[in-house]
Design a protein around this nucleic acid. Structure first.
Lengths: 219, 219
DNA sequence: CGCTGCCTTGAGTTACATCAAACGCGGTGG
DNA sequence: CCACCGCGTTTGATGTAACTCAAGGCAGCG
């Protein structure tokens, strides 16, 4: 997914004007940015750090939906003309900074710079793509397939290139949540894949040597 | 979900102009409207009949994502400025008619009537809501919960009010596909619910007596 | 009144969840 | 530099929900 999609196509002066209309908020790790079903009063843009979307199930488990990187826009529900709630919750993962626009300010910016509205649609469709991919993953019936699919998606969103592959800073618990499997199943599957040299695990991080290899292993 | 969202807020003359720029295509039951991953060349609006979104898994199963009613817009990918593919496939369920705009025509309409762009965003967010709900359903871990959640969602999209509840015209196979369970499991669960008088089954249709009752049964 | 396709029922199997217990990485402070 | 501690992780034993496959029933159509 392209970063900074939200400001794309604006000429530099306009982009500066849009940014100038925001306020910056610094947030510690694991801070709530906004909460599912609250009225959407602000639009956010992650400027540094890491954040993620999640939602809670009725039985209290936390389901991680997507990781956010600098340049990603959050809380687009606030852009809609009809007031509406945030769809999911968002929280920081590490220390982060977000740009904040109030609903009202963003409304007037969008009148001044119509391209912003178009970009909002692009971002919205990009999120739709994520959900479509997540959906496809969840209906694949084995735990291995789901986990592999989560890992591959993470590669695109929070992967760091390293010498022998792509490094992901995630815990088993986070993976399990995203793949809808248990902590234990995740651990067992990852051990197996490590045995097949498809990846290397450390505490809190995983190095994927070949994402495609995983998809083959589960085919 | 509101119908005719795509034309909302246009004044009648403008709405007529937009409609006048479309061509109508009549389609028999089970006809393909467009296919996943083809370049999105047209925007559609279902004007009569029933249609649905689906996608195919790698192992060849068809997953039904959502049912469409008259007034629903399809193929919004064609609205994006950057050419992009359709995200999922769409097909008619019964005999239907769709309004069709080519990408080019729609682009110029959106310049003339900026409200269309805003409506496109609203529709896109509405689809996002559907996916969020579907996601929430798929991660609920029992087959009963998933099936109940599918039935409740169907109530909103394709339910017909009848004297003793809401009628849904769906086969077990379609339900199974949407809930990601097998035909057999679906049959067993539905039988059980029928025993508890929560619904009545006939071949190809189901009458839900109390949607809320289902959610209670699975809680 | 027979035929077709949808639906049901049962028996056997299995992948994954659950629970309990212990391990050991890696950061902290002495 | 070493000892400690917390938390992410591992392993095993056990249970079970749901899948699979096979067979038969039956609704509704022509």
């Amino acid at each position: 997914m392209n970063r900074w999609q939200f400001l794309e196509g604006l000429d530099p002066a306009d982009a500066r004007a849009v940014l100038a209309a925001s306020t910056t908020r610094r947030l510690p790790p694991h801070a709530k940015i906004y909460e599912q079903s609250q009225a959407a009063s602000s639009v956010f843009l992650l400027s540094s750090g890491r954040a993620r979307y999640f939602s809670m199930t009725s039985d209290g488990r936390k389901i991680i939906l997507h990781w956010l990187m600098p340049g990603d826009a959050l809380g687009l529900a606030a852009i809609l003309q009809t007031p509406s709630p945030y769809r999911v919750s968002a929280e920081t993962v590490r220390e982060s900074a977000v740009l904040v626009w109030s609903r009202e300010v963003m409304q007037s910016l969008m009148e001044a710079y119509p391209r912003l509205l178009h970009n909002a649609l692009t971002v919205s469709v990009a999120y739709l793509d994520l959900y479509i991919a997540a959906h496809a993953a969840l209906v694949s019936d084995t735990a291995k397939q789901r986990l592999a699919s989560v890992l591959v998606r993470l590669t695109d969103s929070i992967g760091n290139e390293v010498s022998d592959g792509v490094e992901l800073q995630v815990t088993n618990e986070e993976l399990a949540s995203a793949a809808n499997i248990t902590l234990f199943t995740a651990s067992r599957i990852l051990s197996e894949w490590q045995g097949e040299h498809a990846l290397t695990k450390r505490r809190g991080r995983i190095i994927l040597h070949s994402p495609n290899r995983l998809l083959r292993l589960t085919a």
